[in-house]
Nucleic acid binder design. Sequence first.
DNA 1: TCAATAGTTCCGAATTTCCGAACTAAGGAA
DNA 2: TTCCTTAGTTCGGAAATTCGGAACTATTGA
Lengths: 116, 116
Amino acid sequence: MKFMRPLFHPAIEDIRPEAILYALSDPERVAIFTQLAAGCGVTCSALADLGERTIPKSSLSNHFKVLRESGLIRSERQGVEMRNQSRCAELDERFPGLIEAILTAYRQRPGQPKAD
Amino acid sequence: MKFMRPLFHPAIEDIRPEAILYALSDPERVAIFTQLAAGCGVTCSALADLGERTIPKSSLSNHFKVLRESGLIRSERQGVEMRNQSRCAELDERFPGLIEAILTAYRQRPGQPKAD
DNA sequence: TCAATAGTTCCGAATTTCCGAACTAAGGAA
DNA sequence: TTCCTTAGTTCGGAAATTCGGAACTATTGA
């Protein structure tokens, strides 16, 4: 029988920009990450229905894995469930302004002309 | 016989962050875009060998298409060749700080601890 | 008209993503 | 202990994407 692999987290200095951009090029993952960055909804299943559809368990699990292995979040088992937290602070040290700019871009979403 | 489709460029307000992040999650495309953003090497083939390998023509063409349709660059035929330019200025209006932060992140590339 | 150059399109192979089903892992309850 | 439940992971196959060589288009110049 197969055992679950322990969760992998890259060291801050091993985090690569392409992995971050790739992870955040998926709107579902962005939605998840946004929640985590805001400090809410820390478990996996708590984030199952964000947009119009309910994300299947296995897809959700995969999203978390992508976020984790890209270095965007940290996950840790706590009893039956999983505590997830964003690594925003560390990330901002390594890539100043990056996460902020990305989340801001997504917030601006639909073709809104800038209010100036 | 098939005709070539005219080049598509999204209007500035139709540019979506996910497309930008996806386009720039590929190091080869980032290398191309970086050159364009710096104002150099405007044709396709001029950018064929950026890293260790020579990028095949069809792949290059596809990279440019992805960059173009995500809204990162503007391409225009000029005689036999293609003039490409980044849409940095427009983009920075729409998504302030985004492109800058991304290119800075890539510049910082290998596991360099911040010099402070 | 023909040749050369620059880039695009086609299409098959290889890779990646998606998600249902089966599984693991931990916490109760009896 | 054994069974149940809940939370999430892994497996595996179908669907979608990506990659790149070969053929094609478009333009210039001889």
